[in-house]
Write a protein that binds this DNA or RNA. Structure first.
Lengths: 197, 197
DNA sequence: CCGATGTTTCAGTAATTTCTGAAACTTCAG
DNA sequence: CTGAAGTTTCAGAAATTACTGAAACATCGG
């Protein structure tokens, strides 16, 4: 491994994290190396910096491209392929969320829907189905919401986030101004365990 | 594997998902089996249902307990240990988020902070540091917000979620009512790429 | 078309992770 | 104390996943 010492810890850490996330070590390291590099890098640069084989880098780059976390660029007059990581950290976050949604959440929802269509043949089955229904409901709600959130501009998102838990106040405000036309109990319920944060 | 057919697909699916998430197959299956079971189960029940070795189940249950996703119960007059998954799906979601935060996000933030304290010895290092600063900022913002969100009661959370992207309207409302004391540009910026969803 | 430069594929090997069965340990009733 | 019922540990086997080097493939300038 042949990296500036400051980046080395970062790259190694991402390698470890990769392992934990079902992404392999090398892929994590390649991503990290691209992320901290000012210039786009060639596969050979990565071989040099990470000390892994050329073919391993090639596979890793392919994987990262499928996640849209590495971009291929060409330079005029140079036949080599250069790779870089997207700049905008918010964009990276959104991309990751979208890909995980597509690869993991959607298939899970689909499996759950199939199970819910079956006819329960016993009380045990009925219970299992009820549990699956709850899980389906939760996942669907969270992911729908996330999809909405992802559409917001980074600026809007930021003002929403810096609002933090105070968003509750905003919900109360809404109730007051618009006359509580929807789900008024929700806010009352909140008072119980929220207090005046 | 000796499961009601309706649960079988669910359990197998969770096994697969487990693999992708760095949790092992058996652990995923054990969790799924507990989740859909009306009764708490003994380790031997799980051996029977999943068709894996007793010791494997024992390890898996230990792992799940460390994630607070399986609870140990005792029944009076029975020396065996019974295991069950928490009922409340929201609670499960929060628990998972908390544990991942503790095990993965916190160490990452700490690594980033350390790197940011180093003195950059070259322009490359300075650039790497700047990138790390951005990542640190993003992660911190998201996790702080998440921590706030987790504090809300399920009811409040639900009314917030069913609001979806319309939360933007609420932010606008706030600006109007309170006189736009904070970050008024954020909302204007949003109009550009949001339209009137 | 040729050779130079660069990329991808893939079969075999290495490393890691998961799983098992046997043994050790624990707890309790009699 | 003894043995029955239950649980945990752990060394090695099995399975999976990651990595490599060599060969095949692709693209381009001349």
């Amino acid at each position: 491994m042949n990296l500036h010492p400051l980046s080395q810890a970062f790259v190694l850490h991402f390698g470890e994290m990769g392992s934990r996330w079902g992404i392999n070590r090398t892929v994590g390291q390649i991503y990290a190396a691209l992320y901290v590099s000012r210039e786009a890098l060639t596969a050979d640069d990565l071989v040099d910096r990470l000390g892994v084989s050329r073919s391993n880098v090639s596979m890793g780059l392919k994987e990262l491209q499928s996640w849209r976390l590495a971009r291929l660029e060409h330079r005029p007059g140079d036949r080599r392929e250069f790779f870089s990581a997207p700049e905008d950290v918010w964009q990276i976050f959104k991309t990751l969320a979208e890909e995980r949604q597509r690869r993991e959440v959607d298939p899970t929802l689909s499996m759950l829907r199939d199970a819910l269509l079956e006819t329960a043949a016993s009380p045990e089955d009925a219970y299992a189905q009820e549990r699956m229904r709850r899980m389906h409901e939760l996942i669907e709600q969270i992911t729908d919401w996330f999809a909405e959130i992802r559409k917001l501009s980074p600026e809007t998102l930021q003002s929403l986030m810096s609002l933090g838990g105070k968003v509750v106040k905003l919900l109360e405000l809404k109730e007051r101004v618009l006359g509580g036309r929807r789900a008024p109990d929700a806010l009352a319920a909140n008072e119980r365990d929220q207090g005046d944060a």
